[in-house]
């Protein structure tokens, strides 16, 4: 079996890559994809813990996370489409109406 610490480190690396992408890219699609990567990192950690602990609860939680990620992608992309109709941009720097 794979040691749990290696699975957690793998998940951590993916989460950190997604976090840096979500915080630092300007293209809104790449920000959304980075958020998907972060959600997937959580899935990897849950499945690794489920495999190491020997019960199914981690896999059931991963199914719920996949549900939430699908809903998040649909709503996020709808927001992008609505935003593009109003502002004609997909650059997160120019979407700053609420920034102080």
């Amino acid at each position: 079996m794979i040691p749990l610490s290696h699975v957690i480190i793998f998940s951590l690396i993916i989460f950190v890559i997604g976090m840096v992408g979500a915080l630092s890219r300007r293209n809104v699609f790449i920000v959304l994809m980075s958020i998907e990567l972060m959600l997937n990192a959580v899935n990897i950690a849950l499945i690794g813990v489920s495999s190491a602990m020997g019960n199914m609860i981690g896999q059931v939680l991963a199914i719920f996370i996949i549900t939430v990620a699908a809903g998040e992608a649909a709503v996020g992309l709808a927001i992008v489409v609505a935003l593009y109709r109003n502002r004609l941009t997909v650059n997160v720097d120019s979407i700053n109406l609420l920034k102080w």
Binding site: I13, I14, I17, G18, V20, G21, R25, S34, L37
Partner: peptide, 10 residues
């Protein structure tokens, strides 16, 4: 491979 592909994504 997954880490490399994730790096390419961002």
């Amino acid at each position: 491979l997954g880490v490399i592909m994730s790096l390419m994504v961002v």
